[in-house]
Design a protein around this nucleic acid. Sequence first.
RNA 1: GCGGGCGUGAUGGAAUGGUAGACAUACCAGACUUAAAAUCUGGAGGCCGUAUGGCCGUGCGGGUUCAAGUCCCGCCGCCCGCACCA
Length: 853
Amino acid sequence: MSRYTASDIEQKWQAAWDKADVFKARRDESKPKYYVLEMFPYPSGRIHMGHVRNYTMGDVIARFKIASGFSVLHPMGWDAFGMPAENAAMAIGGHPKTWTYGNIADMRAQMKPLGLSIDWSREFATCDPEYYGQQQAMFIDFMAKGLVYRKNAVVNWDPVDMTVLANEQVIDGKGWRSNAPVERRELTQWFFKISDYSEELLEALDGLHNWPEKVRTMQANWIGKSRGLQFSFNLTEPAGSFDSVEVYTTRPDTLLGANFIGISPDHPLARALEAENADLAAFNAECRRMGTSEADMEKAEKKGFDTGLRVKHPLDDSWELPVWVANFILMDYGTGAIFGCPAHDQRDLDFSRKYDLPVVDTFFALDDDTPVADLAFVPPKTERVKWVNHFAGLDIATGQEAIDATIDWAEEKGWGKGVTNYRLRDWGLSRQRYWGCPIPVVHCEDCGVVPEKKENLPVELPDDVTFDLPGNPLDRHPTWRDCACPACGKAAKRETDTMDTFVDSSWYFARFTSPRATTPTDAADADYWMNVDQYIGGIEHAILHLLYSRFFARAMNITGHLPDKAIEPFNALFTQGMVTHEIYVTRDERDRPVYHLPEDIEWHESGARLGATGEEITVVPSAKMSKSKKNVVDPDDIISSYGADTARWFVMSDSPPERDVEWTAAGAEATHKHLGRVWTLSDRISKMSADDGGNGDDDLTRATHRAIRDVTEGIESFAFNKAVAKLYEFTNTIAKSKAGVAAQKTAIMTLAQLMSPMTPHLAEDIWARQGGEGLVVNAPWPKPDPAMLVEDTVTLPIQVNGKRRSEIAVPVDMSKEEVEKLVLANDAVKKALDGGAPKKLIIVPGRIVNVVI
RNA sequence: GCGGGCGUGAUGGAAUGGUAGACAUACCAGACUUAAAAUCUGGAGGCCGUAUGGCCGUGCGGGUUCAAGUCCCGCCGCCCGCACCA
């Protein structure tokens, strides 16, 4: 008897697919097209189980669509620019390019054995000059349309390493290598005008029906549209050139509860006051030492500094309020100045208690007049509340009504104006680093900032650079930096900033439609293949990557690189969960965690112990795989011990794809055994003789059609775990069936087809051994026969007062009246009724019966 | 801190508001074997009971409903994002 040997069959069928070139995406106008895309990987050097799961999901969809008659585009590439390559160059020497292309080769070699239905002829890396040159061309087009500009912005500056740090490189306010306190430094940087599209990006979210609701909500909150009132508080005495402070508030209705004016440490007034106030200068300096990230600022202790300035309340000239500088006010949002209203804002309340500022209630709950103590009263804006002496004449009204009325009132009186604000800021794309796409502009003393001529693109990164000195190698590369001005020809200097890697990933999906075109896209190809019908990736990209890509699609549209229909480039989005694995932890003498590899653990009845020392191990389940925690499972190992189909089947089973899945060695082993059972089952059926009779043909045929229906439904609805469960069930049904050879053969071939998106190699092998025609990858997807799906009886559970007490089997189409008779005749019901009549009898046809007594 | 999500047996999970635990893992028992592994058959949420059966049970506390894992309110825990990680 032959056995299931994954390594043999997987190589064989991969070679067969290559030979038939089955995954080549062809522009075939006679077929509907389907574009499935998984977020492309960063070439870190090794693929991990998360990649396997991500790409297998896309592969299941791609193969299902091929079988369903679509012309499928399923490409793969590399998000290849970014910091790790430079970090590697600094740590181990060598060049980022060598490191990156080496990693790509390694990862491609690891991915190929998975048998993914990828059209590798379209592969590219974002660090290929052919790719980033086209990106530069688009940048120049964006400049021409006014979508790009320069302004000053702050960066994290490491004063020891003399370099700009990313937020993640700032740890507790210090540089990750130097450990020196990080400073904020202002640089002139490049920006995309994404804020021009705030309203459109927000409104268009409503049309993204096949995106997860949570992603749309997160994007809407990120864009952060708000309507509020902008108005000024006049200073009691002018301070320098300032005679007022302009504030923006979304709760102007609470103006009578104001108790202080807060301004950002970066507010022009705060900066002006620094000159004469050393204490304030020190306070502002301290604020500026905080990280630049919003999370850092929000988490920091709320602190303020009383400037001594006073303003007049706009509703009452005799009422004066102090002006404080506060570390939690962002200069980027609104006017960089607010009024504090402690009764209805927890942060303002904490601040006021800390600095002993008065707290004034402006409204109460309808049934509770208790003044605010330590908990601000912040009801939903839709809740009706009772106003204390409201200036616009309100008595009982909701917050929203009060806001609207106040804005109208203030506009009428002429002391404020209603303003719509967005939280979304322009996209700063400058990076002071080498390994990125050079920004294709030249700085000329006479002409200013001039875009490079398109015929000179790509502006290619120079190879002769070193990373032994701090800072950006482009900055100290005179022969690269010095150039001729594209406008006047005089000596000029190149821009040395490179682009944020989010730029690279904001249009790669469009490039895949025509990856070798000598323009960013090809109109006919983009028109045929766009949009991406199914995009698959991690939830961590819910906001930035997806929002930037949506902006880019619009920018590419107005610069003629994408058709109108591609303004929203992703028709459907699916966000998959992570692959996790237990971690094994002991503690060192200073109680710091020490992680151990799975192979160093011994399992005893008392629990897990470290093999070498017998030390007790704490097992932490469901931890994200990471090298530092030593819980990474290498797909290579799994493929060499069990085969790709086992890895693919495992990551599709059990957990719903949007949730995390825990990798377990036992699960992998069991998966492999199951595939072996399927293979053996097929082997047994292929040896049945033609005249083997049998019984239960009809049952098996019905089970086959139910399996087709259920598995198809599972795949279409991204419920791969349920599809897999149905396939287990169907396999068990076939294994137990005593049906004749024809029915069994049909069943096993159908099983092979239904499994083929998940375990394509095994499916091909079974298909071929059963005498299937051609390759299963090209076989049309089976359709269930409706006649074989009809059930004639149904089991109705009977509840008494909501608790299940019995059940009856009835014909599907039995009338309510007849069901009622049967229910009342049921022993359990009679016993419960004890001769009485039910209060109510609820019959949900085909579902359930509830007797209320 | 702010925004978003998740929480069901020992474990991963299933369940258009309608029989909670499909399917699978681990486990237990039986068959085969000198034995083990593999394979096959069967069992199984917890508690009580020989059993028919009963009570309890979907993170915690309330509520709506004939009926709640599912809907609503309030907590707790974990995960993701917070604009220079990708």
